[in-house]
Design a protein around this nucleic acid. Structure first.
Length: 491
RNA sequence: CGGGGUGUAGCGCAGUUGGUAGCGUGCUACGUUCGGGACGUAGAGGCCGUGUGUUCGAGUCACAUCACCCCGACCA
């Protein structure tokens, strides 16, 4: 075995790193903290983009693009926002290089200092709201529903491929509304879009809810989120949607004339998901053999591998394989027929397993004689002999089944690792032993939350909006609590 | 920013008391193979992170420096 993965049990985070690099998803680059997303990884990201983009359009949003650079002064206009991002901003101070007079290479030209420094966007609220000011005068200009696909930079001390990188790709929606209610509806609508996407496409069960005050986005009045559980029992925030109130409208003086003829500040939301979803997808489903992709997110859904001894055999298999490929493609299934003579079948099996192709179809002379193929599914690693008759029906159904099975498996895992606890001692003990999600009572104060984080490294991941909340008493202070909240250690 | 570690072939690593560089894998060619990462034979591939010093002689010793990785603090 040329490419051996560390097993999950041995070292979960090493397993993740191995998987990302060995499955050719991404690698570290010459720039510390920044990754190169390789074609296979990028193809998955493109599938995510395509689905999400359609979902945004279907909910009335349009795409636009705002600059990478933000004048420094913009960032300081909204106080809590600055506080949230100041520590991790890359700053452009000069606009020119020149040859080093003392030798080789180039140096920054000290003559070319910028009048006002530019910040590489950590997020675009400020540049966008400074622009919206010019676009919005009347209630007739509202709502403004805009999304942008972009890269952002947050200068992180410690980075991990996809999960936390200094530069990452994402989409950020920024909307403006005439009323508070409408903005809240928008923020809630978009978190539901993310939840649907996670469940139906990524096959990841997520919990929808809101963040506690201390976990909230800098500048938001309310942050909604979707939280997923990874296979090591840790939580991963997979998407956020913020109700920004009038904070940015006030900071950038964005007012509109209401129907009644008054002037009022507009109400805002912003929402985003990033290449972090790649990390979620990888960690939610994959196994010790490599990546496991839900069919809807797999760039290649079916790979066909010929097994042959000589070129005459290959020619016969080629004919049958291209026939099957055509039939599958007619159904909208993406198929790769790998008849490269430079790699052996066994090598190809291992390779596509590592890369997470959901269905492998192997065809040799034995199969050809019986008019059969061997199908192997990636999620269960099961192999079956299947007739070539109506193979497209069989595979079409199989892909649906695999998608469902992957979701069910993740759902079951989460259920088995979610615990109700009422005593803080039990919480601490079990968290260390098993990890997972803990439904516990909390008195609602930031102090208690901070104490729990300090002592256990667990945080409140999400506060759900339950129809029948179960009241109780805070596991730490014993004070009354309206409902249980979800605690976990997080990425 | 604190603590620890590592820099030697594309990748992963070994290199003893200081004596002129090796293994695995990958790569190239040819042959035999081909139903789970095949085998044989022959090859190519190195400023031993960088600099200064000690020495007849440095991958090896000393000092400095740079880079990267891991664990913390901070964060999506």
């Amino acid at each position: 075995m040329a490419k051996e993965l560390t097993t999950r049990e041995e070292n979960y985070s090493q397993w993740y790193n191995d998987l990302v690099t060995k499955a050719d998803l991404a690698e570290n680059s010459a720039v510390r903290g920044c990754m190169v997303i390789k074609p296979h990884g990028y193809a998955i990201w493109e599938k995510m983009q395509a689905v999400l983009d359609k979902m945004f359009k279907d909910t009335g949003h349009v795409n636009a693009y705002f600059p990478l650079f933000i004048p420094k002064s913009f960032l300081s206009k909204e106080a809590s926002h600055v506080e949230g991002f100041a520590k991790e901003c890359a700053v452009v101070t000069h606009y020119r290089l020149k040859s080093d007079p003392n030798g080789k290479g180039v140096i920054v030209d000290p003559e070319a200092k910028l009048e006002e420094e530019l910040i590489v966007r950590p997020t675009s609220e400020t540049i966008i709201w400074s622009t919206y000011k010019n676009w919005i005068q009347s209630y007739r200009d509202l709502p403004l529903l805009i999304n942008q696909w972009a890269n952002v930079v947050r200068w992180e001390m410690r980075t991990r491929l996809f999960l936390r990188t200094a530069e990452f790709l994402w989409q950020e929606g920024h909307t403006a509304h005439a009323s508070k209610e409408e903005a809240i509806v928008e923020a809630e609508k978009m978190i539901e879009v993310y939840a649907t996407f996670a469940r139906e496409y990524l096959a990841i069960p997520v919990i929808v809810g809101r963040k506690s005050e201390s976990e909230r986005f800098a500048g938001a009045l309310d942050t909604y989120c979707i939280e997923a559980m990874m296979q090591d029992g840790k939580a991963l925030q997979a998407g956020t949607s913020h109700f920004l109130g009038q904070n940015f409208a006030k900071a950038f003086d964005v007012k509109f004339a209401t129907k009644e003829g008054n002037l009022d500040y507009v109400w805002a939301t912003s929402w985003g998901v990033s290449t972090r979803l790649m990390g979620a997808l990888i960690m939610a489903h994959s196994d010790d053999h490599g990546l496991v992709l839900p069919p809807k997110m797999a760039p290649i859904q079916v790979v066909i591998v010929p097994i042959y001894k000589n070129m005459a055999d290959l020619e016969k298999i080629d004919n049958a394989a291209f026939e099957i490929k055509k039939k599958l493609e007619k159904r909208g299934i993406s198929v790769k027929y790998d008849n490269r003579d430079t790699q052996k079948p066994g090598w190809k099996f291992a390779e596509y397993e590592l890369k997470g192709v959901p269905v492998r179809l192997a065809m040799g002379m034995r199969d050809l004689e019986k008019n059969e193929v061997e199908l192997a599914r990636r999620d269960t690693l099961q192999k079956t002999q299947v007739s070539q008759e109506n193979i497209e029906d069989y595979i079409e159904n199989l892909l649906v089944e695999i998608q469902q099975n992957i979701y069910d498996k993740a759902f079951k895992f989460r259920a088995e690792n979610t615990f109700k606890v009422d005593s803080y001692e039990e919480f601490k003990k079990q968290l260390d032993e098993k990890g997972g999600f803990y439904l516990a009572h909390w008195d609602g104060t930031a102090e208690t939350e901070a104490l729990i984080k300090e002592e256990t490294k667990a945080t409140i991941r999400v506060i759900t909006d339950d129809e029948n909340p179960e009241p109780g008493f805070c596991m730490v202070t014993g004070k009354p609590s309206k409902q249980r909240v979800v605690f976990a250690r997080a990425y």
